[in-house]
Design a protein around this nucleic acid. Structure first.
Lengths: 222, 222
DNA sequence: CGCTGTATTGACCTCCTTCAAATGCGGTGG
DNA sequence: CCACCGCATTTGAAGGAGGTCAATACAGCG
């Protein structure tokens, strides 16, 4: 099924705001982000895409992308013709359900980010983001001993949390100082997940991993 | 179709976090909010529900609510058995599409809120929220001459924007002072929508009103 | 070896919070 | 009708989280 795969290098755009894609895009390797450009030119990252995540699954219903998607790290993207998706959703109820499950989890994640963004200090937000990424990476088997690849700049983290690069730096320093994380811009290690979760006030349940429908999807795509 | 309608007075809960509703809830009159309770006990409002909005349309796929829903003003809620919804989505492709359209617009709205929350000052956020509510109220015919009912406390606004009540008050004072809004806690009037939109940096497109599928839904429910 | 992009650190300033007190207002009972 | 109560609004003053500006260090790379 993996008919066309495209390599996108870090920083490159995958889908632009306003576009009307005819293919559905799926991240196979690497790391990407959803973002919106603000009137003042800033970039607001509203979600991260890791291997197994769809970029624009149901854009056909809304017609046009209301946000863009770009690669954070070098990534491999699969392009699946929309007809293929339509055929799957029409004729395979299980898969249809799995795809909508993924969309609804995206929505739940947005709610968690929003609650975080408004009501918590930046250091807790950062910790919360790391907890989420670790949980998701683990769910797709890309985590080993509390550690996973995370080639991301402090600039990107700032755009995701809505804080300045300078402050990102200070927070990372503090989290490192507390021994909560080990991070060098390439990969992230969490020595003690329980401690980080407690610090972040993290509650996995919004990721709905207990009934995760993604594993079969990844197998299916490869 | 409007078999069971329930009156919920301001402040009362409609659905609790963790619940597994067997009925789908639709707001017919009034105003409600989605919220998450933070570890520290604060309430984070992650969305407003106006007449025509569904509370828990596709909760069946995720299984349990990862957030709660409460009435902000006295509201009338319709409870539709899940089987009815399932029947509609299975046998009426148009309606199925409309329901998913509503879900995807919710998601787009969350992205807009998130981008707002992190990357803009509170006064612009507040203006942006008012722009959105006005646009949505207009879309369901509840707006007259730039004015609509908005019986909401400054506390609620604070929980939605993630700022203190004190600061909400100061911002409202400033917006009133600039002549951008007229607001008395009961209803909101926007004398000059263009000016407010410019101030807020508001771009309606994320609401996808051009292909709004909601009007027929409201008729259908009544 | 110089260039460019990222990380790090300091000093100062702004937005927003917290604490505290005052004002207004709808409802209720006398 | 008025006194009283609870709740939301309003306003002041002081403190903290994070932003902005700016300088320095550092690493990859042609």
């Amino acid at each position: 099924v993996c008919r066309r795969s495209r390599l996108v290098s870090a920083g490159q755009s995958i889908i632009n705001e306003g576009q009307v894609p005819s293919d559905v895009h799926l991240v196979l390797e690497g790391l990407a982000c959803r973002y919106k450009l603000m009137p003042n030119g800033e970039r607001s990252i509203v979600g991260f895409l890791i291997p197994g995540d769809f970029c624009d699954l149901h854009v056909a219903i809304l017609g046009r992308m209301d946000h863009g998607i770009a690669a954070i790290a070098d990534s491999r993207i699969v392009e699946i013709p929309y007809e293929t998706i339509a055929d799957l959703t029409d004729n395979h109820p299980r898969i249809n359900r799995a795809l909508w499950w993924a969309t609804l989890v995206d929505e739940a994640t947005l709610r968690a980010w929003l609650a975080n963004s408004g009501h918590r200090q930046a250091n807790r937000q950062m910790a919360h983001l790391f907890c989420e990424l670790l949980a998701r990476m683990k769910a797709v088997g890309l985590e080993v001993d509390g550690s996973f690849r995370l080639p991301i700049t402090q600039d990107d983290l700032g755009d995701a949390l809505g804080i300045s690069t300078v402050h990102v730096n200070r927070i990372l320093k503090a989290l490192r100082g507390k021994g909560l994380i080990i991070f060098d811009g390439k990969s992230l290690t969490v020595p003690d997940m329980d401690r980080l979760e407690a610090y972040a006030g993290f509650d996995v349940s919004y990721l709905h991993l207990h009934d995760c429908k993604k594993a079969p999807l990844l197998k299916f795509a490869t």
